[in-house]
Nucleic acid binder design. Structure first.
Lengths: 179, 179
DNA sequence: GAGAATGTTTTCAATAGCGAAGTAATTTAA
DNA sequence: TTAAATTACTTCGCTATTGAAAACATTCTC
C-alpha cells in the first residue's frame, strides 16, 4: 500500500516535471508561459477581475499575480483601471491584443493532453478526472496564501466559471493606474 | 469533453501548486526539499548510484542533479567516490547522517498523502494510481534532458526498484573526488 | 473623528530548476 | 594512433515563484 502511495507520488512528480518543461517550451515558442496563458484565460472569462481574484482563481500567490499582470501589461495584453469604489484595487481586462494572443497561442501541454485525452474511452476520462480531483483534495493544504474558496472533491470544474463578480460594477474606464 | 480535459489540467495545476508549497514548508522545517529527500531515497534504494542515475530516476535535469548532490554533500548526507572504470563519473552513497536524515525527516506531503491515501478504499487507490500513470504517460514528452528510459503506462512502479546497477561494481572506497 | 484591525497590492530577497555551453574522459572509426 | 563523436558532469545566466514585510485604503469601534 505504502508502495502504491509512493508510486502515485512519483507519477505526480513526473507529471509535474513535464508541466514545467512544457512551460519553458511554450515560453520559448510563444513568449507566454502556461501561467500567463491561464491568467489570460481567467481574465477573458471574467471580463474584468482584480489581482486578488486572479490570484485566487489561478491558485498562485498574490505576489505572483502582480508579476504576471505586470508582464502581460508590458506585452500590451491587458489594461488596468483603478476601482472607483475601492481605491486599493483595480480592474484588469484584456486588450484586443490580449484576446488575439490568447486564442492564437496554443498550449502544447494542453494540446497534447487534450488530444490524447480525447482518444481514450469515456469512462476512463471520467475516471481520470475523478482521480485527479481526489488527489487534488488529498494534497490540498490551503491556497498559496488564501483558502481556495472551498476545496471539495467536485469544485474544480467551477474554477473557471464563476459569477460576474458581485461588485458595484465600477464602470468608467478612467484612471489607467499610473505606473 | 474539452471541458473535462481542462478540469483535469486545473486539478493538476492545483496539485502542482500544493506540491510546491509543500516543498517550501518542508525546507523551512527540516532544511530539506522534497527533491532532496527524493534523492536521498533514491540513493538509499540504489546503495550507490551516479549523478546520471539520480537525474534519470528523479526526473530532473543533470544540472539539477549536480546542485542537489552538492547541497546534500555539504550537509554531510552523502559521500562520493570516483569510478575506477570510468573516471568521468562517480558513485554517490549515503552517510550515516544521510540515512538518519532520510528516516527522521518525514515529508509532509507524503505523510498527508499517504495517510489520506490509506483511508480510501482499495479499488479507489488502484484507480488513482492507474489514472496518474495514465496521465503521466499522456503528458510525458521526454525526460528533462534525456529519455525517461521508456515511459510506458506501467513503468512508474519500477522507478524506485531497479537492479543493483549492471556495473563492474567498482569496489575500493578510494578517491573521494577532490573538490 | 481617532485609532485599530483588516484587506489589497507591491517590493524585496531568496530559491529551485532549467538550457546552453564548457570541460574532461571514453569510445568509435579510419 | 589520431581524430571525431559520444557521454558524464559542471558552470553560468536566467526565469518563475514564493513568503515576509511595506505601503496604502477601507472599515470597524469607541
Amino acid at each position: 500500500m505504502e508502495d502504491r502511495a509512493l508510486s502515485c507520488l512519483l507519477a505526480l512528480r513526473r507529471v509535474l516535471g513535464a508541466a514545467e518543461r512544457n512551460d519553458r517550451a511554450l515560453a520559448r515558442a510563444t513568449g507566454l508561459t502556461t501561467a500567463q496563458l491561464l491568467v489570460l484565460r481567467i481574465i477573458e472569462d471574467a471580463k474584468e477581475i482584480t489581482p486578488k481574484g486572479i490570484s485566487t482563481r489561478a491558485g498562485v500567490a498574490p505576489a505572483s499575480a502582480t508579476a504576471l499582470i505586470e508582464k502581460l501589461a508590458q506585452l500590451g495584453y491587458l489594461r488596468r483601471r483603478r476601482s472607483e469604489s475601492d481605491r486599493r484595487k483595480y480592474w484588469v481586462s484584456l486588450t484586443e491584443a490580449g484576446v488575439a494572443a490568447l486564442h492564437s497561442a496554443p498550449d502544447p501541454l494542453h494540446q497534447r493532453f487534450s488530444s490524447a485525452f480525447d482518444t481514450i474511452s469515456n469512462w476512463e476520462q471520467a475516471m481520470i478526472l475523478s482521480a485527479l480531483e481526489r488527489v487534488a483534495a488529498l494534497v490540498a493544504d490551503e491556497g498559496p496564501d488564501q483558502k481556495p474558496a472551498g476545496v471539495g472533491v467536485h469544485d474544480i470544474s467551477s474554477a473557471l466559471s464563476f459569477p460576474p463578480e458581485p461588485e458595484p460594477a465600477d464602470p468608467q474606464p478612467a484612471d489607467p493606474v499610473a505606473t
